[in-house]
């Protein structure tokens, strides 16, 4: 199993770089995991990239999981109502209720 930890923000400013990053990671194996714990900021551009990665993995028959969602990521996924669609386990922080 391969793991990638995204260590930067997932926003429009980093989108181009992160796209290449994610795609090359997708090619590195069949059972993949992306650690989102270090993502401090995320916007629509970042969301699109995650959707793209999920879709591409499904298309090529690979397993891709997002784990350790940071609060910034969770906020966005909740706002876009995509948490369930992604189907990853998330830890809901208690402070948010």
């Amino acid at each position: 199993m391969q793991t990638l930890t995204i260590e930067d923000e997932l926003t429009i400013f980093t989108a181009a770089e992160q796209k290449n990053n994610l795609l090359s990671f997708l090619n590195s194996g069949d059972d993949l995991e992306i650690n989102l714990s270090q993502v401090t900021e995320m916007d629509t551009a970042g969301l699109q990239l995650l959707v793209l990665a999920k879709r591409e993995a499904a298309r090529t028959g690979k397993t891709l999981r997002f784990v350790m969602h940071s609060k910034a990521v969770l906020d966005i996924l909740e706002l876009a109502n995509l948490t369930t669609a992604f189907g990853d386990q998330v830890v809901i922080s208690h402070s948010e209720g």
């Binding site: 989108a15 992160q18 796209k19 629509t44 551009a45 793209l52 876009a80 995509l82």
Partner: peptide, 19 residues
């Protein structure tokens, strides 16, 4: 969220909004 406007990987411009 309507995501089906996101094109194939190669054509997808990460700075364009598709949502």
């Amino acid at each position: 969220t309507i995501t089906n406007r996101i094109p194939a990987v190669a054509e997808m411009d990460p700075e364009t909004n598709y949502l």
